[in-house]
Design a protein around this nucleic acid. Structure first.
Length: 246
DNA sequence: ATTCTGTCCTGTAGGC
DNA sequence: TGCCTACAGGACAGAA
């Protein structure tokens, strides 16, 4: 459920709170969220100092000063939450606890346990990161690129927008909002969009994602920012999960 | 090559 | 009250 705007919000906040903090100890409460061997994960991260936090597609990337990385994919219900005291943070869904310097604590919560924490020495060890498409808010995903790529694709436009190999970071919620904003049916074949529609689509991608970042994402269900607060963009939602039931 | 189906999990909502 | 089913919409493996 966390898509680009939610992960971007988390990343921005973590980048402010976690910089220069050192991992003093780690408690793994549920090994299923750890990619690879839990023991190795613990050993690898012990004593590491955080240099900065970045985002690629829907993944949060924690950079350490020794050029190693912790990649966190929140999938549907993952949360990264930071506070000064553990007792304020621990909930039933807490899977991993990082005790940091200066009494800071970072926890990973995940109700459905789909998310993964991966330690890597190099980012190109991560196949997800190797395969994701361009960032939709960066220059390489401009209108010209979009028009050219859409021409090659027979898939309906909505699943294509949600395909991370096509473009990074868009999921069900924002694909719905973007297509509504651009007044394009989700079932339209990508290659058959007219050039005016491609322009409207590109503008809608920019506008919706930027606005959602401004509102700190959308909390339809489980999403919380790193302070445990809800995003505000769901007040702006026009179509997702708003189908009338009779 | 692309598209579809099932899987990983837990919790909630709705029907009866 | 409680049992049962559908669904959540992220990524990937394996089948069609």
């Amino acid at each position: 459920m966390p898509e680009l705007p939610e992960v971007e919000t988390i990343k921005e906040d973590l980048n402010k709170t976690l910089k220069a903090l050192t991992i003093q100890s780690i408690k793994i409460l549920d090994e299923r969220v750890i990619q690879g061997q839990p023991q190795k994960f613990l050993q690898s991260l012990q004593g590491k100092t955080i240099k900065q936090v970045s985002r690629r597609a829907k993944a949060v990337i924690i950079h350490f000063t020794d050029q190693t990385f912790l990649i966190v994919h929140l999938k549907m219900t993952g949360q990264l939450i930071v506070a000064k005291a553990v007792q304020d943070l621990m909930i039933k869904e807490t899977k991993v606890i990082f005790m940091l310097s200066k009494n800071w604590v970072l926890v990973y919560n995940d109700q459905r346990v789909f998310g993964k924490l991966t330690f890597v020495k190099r980012l190109d060890e991560c196949s997800y990161l190797n395969n994701v498409g361009p960032e939709p808010l960066e220059q390489d995903a401009n209108v010209g690129w979009l028009a050219q790529e859409l021409k090659k694709r027979k898939s309906p436009i909505k699943p294509l927008l949600m395909n991370q190999m096509f473009v990074a970071g868009i999921g069900n919620i924002y694909a719905s909002e973007i297509l509504f904003e651009a007044r394009i049916s989700p079932t339209r074949q990508a290659s058959r969009l007219k050039s005016g529609e491609v322009e409207k689509l590109h503008k809608a991608i920019q506008d919706i994602l930027k606005s959602a970042i401004k509102w700190r994402g959308c909390s339809m269900r489980n999403y919380r920012d790193s302070a445990g607060e809800k995003g505000l963009f769901m007040n702006k939602i026009k179509v997702y999960a708003r189908q009338e039931k009779n």
